[in-house]
């Protein structure tokens, strides 16, 4: 699947936005400005962007507790997201959800999720809607390696297959679920699990945007054409702790530093496109500085934004009551 110049630039911009967003949330959190539980997606950008660059607003995704990257890749407003994470009244969800519950249904972003394994059943439902209403849409469930062991995930594999739903399960395997290694927690392999349910599966290097983009394109196209569900198993590195504040003593010393140095998805992208003469380094530099100022702006707007007004505590529980 050949990407044109525009698409390459857009993909890089989105990956950079995620990276910069997460690095900045990390800093702001450590300075005490952000309340609650925050799980960062830095290091995993190529997965969200490689998959979501094939999607449009009729397509739905379900995300996880580590949701910022999926939100950005699916087109959520970055300023609204940052405000949400700061708990502001004009955040994307009015400050009522926070980091773990960012959603924008108008963009087909069905929510980050505080419940591990919460997404796959929902995404079967979104796919059922697309199939029933013949929208041509597909639905993508992002799950972690940890979430891949939940009954909800495995049941959804089965349901998606027997209903022949346009679903793509993306297992983002960063090697850990909290402090537990996926090498221990996952029996069998993701690909063989998928095969057992009669689904096509691809095993992918999560630092290689192009490989993910290619494979995602194939399985999404098949799903759109009525060919049913597939699974992508993407191996990546999470650059920060499980959540902000995690000392990460369960990791090998230097693990993240090595990954950042040798297998960074953004560096990989840059090398690939500049070596092939597809883009100029200066263009990529330009994107990086634009992204930085966008994120700067999102943080300063968030800091000065008002808290939700007190009566908002009681609103939005029901549509009508």
């Amino acid at each position: 699947m050949q990407l044109n110049r525009e698409e390459l630039l857009q993909s890089y911009r989105t990956m950079c936005t995620i990276r910069e967003f997460e690095e900045r949330v990390h800093t702001e959190f450590s300075e005490g400005g952000i309340p609650g539980f925050v799980h960062l997606y830095a290091g995993e950008e190529a997965s969200a962007v490689g998959v979501c660059s094939h999607l449009d607003d009729r397509d739905n995704i379900a995300s996880t507790h580590r949701g910022h990257g999926h939100c950005i890749a699916k087109g959520c407003d970055v300023v609204g997201m940052m405000k949400e994470i700061f708990g502001r009244g004009d955040g994307l969800c009015g400050g009522k959800g926070g980091s773990m519950h960012i959603a924008d249904l108008s963009r087909g972003m069905m929510g980050a999720n505080g419940i591990v394994g919460g997404g796959p059943p929902l995404i079967c439902g979104a796919a059922l809607t697309a199939k029933t209403l013949k929208t041509g849409g597909v639905a993508v469930a992002f799950v972690g390696d940890g979430a891949s062991n939940q009954g909800t995930t495995l049941e959804s594999f089965n349901l998606a297959k027997v209903w022949n739903l346009p679903v793509i399960f993306v297992v983002e395997d960063n090697g850990y679920a909290e402090a537990t290694a996926s090498a221990w927690s996952v029996a069998g392999t993701q690909a063989k699990r998928a095969a057992a349910f009669g689904m096509t599966a691809h095993e992918l290097d999560g630092n290689d945007f192009f490989a993910i983009h290619q494979a995602a394109g194939e399985v999404i196209e098949r799903a759109r054409d009525g060919g049913g569900p597939s699974l992508l198993h993407v191996k990546l590195t999470r650059y920060f702790g499980h959540f902000e504040g995690d000392a990460m003593s369960y990791r090998a010393p230097g693990e993240v530093e090595t990954a950042r140095r040798e297998r960074d998805p953004l560096k990989f992208f840059r090398q690939r496109v500049t070596a092939a003469g597809l883009l100029e380094p200066a263009q990529l530099d330009g994107i990086e500085s634009e992204v930085r100022s966008l994120i700067d702006q999102s943080v300063s707007l968030s800091k000065s934004a008002p808290a939700p007004s007190p009566e908002r505590l009681l609103t939005d529980v029901y549509v009508s009551y």
């Binding site: 909290e178 402090a179 221990w184 990460m248 003593s249 369960y250």
Partner: peptide
């Protein structure tokens, strides 16, 4: 429980979490 010890199968410290 989940990570009641922590570090299962991982290269770093054992008893890494002792619960969340």
């Amino acid at each position: 429980g989940e990570d009641n010890v922590g570090g299962m199968g991982a290269p770093g410290e054992d008893d890494a979490w002792g619960g969340v």
